[in-house]
Design a protein around this nucleic acid. Sequence first.
DNA 1: GCGTACGGAGTGAGTGCTCACTCCGTCAAG
DNA 2: CTTGACGGAGTGAGCACTCACTCCGTACGC
Lengths: 195, 195
Amino acid sequence: MSPEQRREMIVAAALPLVAEQGAAVTTSQIARAAGIGEGTIFRVFADKDELLDACMAEAMNPGHVLRELASISLDDPLDARLVQAAEALRAHTDRIGTVIGALHASGHRRPRGNGDRPAPDGRRASMDATLDAVRELIEPDRAALRPSPETLASVFLGMVSNRYHLVAGESRTPLEEIVDILLHGAFKAPENAAT
Amino acid sequence: MSPEQRREMIVAAALPLVAEQGAAVTTSQIARAAGIGEGTIFRVFADKDELLDACMAEAMNPGHVLRELASISLDDPLDARLVQAAEALRAHTDRIGTVIGALHASGHRRPRGNGDRPAPDGRRASMDATLDAVRELIEPDRAALRPSPETLASVFLGMVSNRYHLVAGESRTPLEEIVDILLHGAFKAPENAAT
DNA sequence: GCGTACGGAGTGAGTGCTCACTCCGTCAAG
DNA sequence: CTTGACGGAGTGAGCACTCACTCCGTACGC
C-alpha cells in the first residue's frame, strides 16, 4: 500500500474518533480503528499533530460542497438556487462542525505558531472558497438586490450554519423559511399583502 | 474564604486559560493563575472534570446578556431594539464561543453520558433562555411580521453568531446591516424604491 | 524452476515524560 | 493546645513516540 493511501486510510479511520473526542483521541485508538499497528501511524505521519492537521484539512475540504454548489443551475430562480445551496451547505457544516470545534480545543497548536495569529491556517481559505461560491450563485440577481452579493453570501452562510434549532413550519422546511426571510424580510409587505 | 468564593475564584482564574487551551489546560497552570496550591483545587472540586463543567456553566451563564436584553426598551422601534440586542448577543457569543468549542474538544465527557444524546446539558437550557428573551423582544410586533417571533428569534441568533466575517458597509455597521436584511429582505422593494 | 539474500513495510512492547490527584507537614485562628 | 485550611512534593497511570525485530515480495544466481 502506497504511503499516500496509508495516510488517507488512517485519516478516514481517525475522523469519526476526532469528531467525537477531539484531540484527546489517542494514537492507539486510531491504530485499532484503522486495523494497523500503532507504529505504522508514525511511519507516515511525523507526529500526532501532523495527523490531526490532516484530519482537519480533510474535514474542511470544501471540494464536495463546492462541486454541489457549482452544479446548481443559474437558470433556476434565486430562491430555488438558495434552497439547494442551503441543503448542500447544511450537510457540509454538520459534517465538519464537530471536527473543527473539537480540534480548536485541546490547544492543537500550529507547528511554527507564534501564537498570536487567530486563524492563519487553511480554515480561512476554505471558508473564503465557500463564501465565493455562494456569492457567484447570487451574482446574477445583483441588480435586484439591495445588499451586495458578498454581504448576502456572508449573511446567508451565517443563517444556514445556525446552531439554534429552527422548527419546521407547516408547509415549509426550515431552510425554505430561511431563504424566504433572507429574500423578502420579516415584515409583511406594506401595500400588497399577497399570500 | 468560603468554599463558594473559592470555587468562583478558581473558575475566574481558569476561564481565560480554558478559552485558550481547552481541556488541555493543566491543573497546575490553573493553580498558578489563581495564586493557590494545586491541592486546594481538589478540595473544592471533586476532579478536573467538575472544574471544567463549572467553567462551561459560567461561560454560558446567560445572566448578563439576559439582563441586557431585558433592559431594552420596548418603546423603541423594532429595528433599534434588534440592533441593541445584536450588540449584546455578539459580545456574549464572542465571550463564550471559544470556551464551548474548546471544551467540546478534548472529549470533555458528561458524567453519566451514554454518548448518544447530542446536548443534554445546561447548554440547551442556556440557549433556550436566550432564545426566549429575544422572542419577547420581537413579540410586540408580532402582528406586523410574517414569520412567528419564535422563528425570527432563532434566525436572528443564527445571523448574529455568524462566524463568516461580515465587512462593514459605508454608513452602516454589520449588525445594522443584519437587522435591516432580516426585517426588510434582500430584494429591493418592487413598487416603492424608497431610500 | 528453485533456493537464497535483500529491503523495506509493518509491528508492539518498551521508554521517558506529563499530568491528575494524594498526602502530610506547616501554620494561623480560636 | 487543637483544629482545619493550605501548599506542593510525591505517586501512579496513561500517553506519544521509538526501535529491534518479523514477515513477505522481489530479484538474482544457479
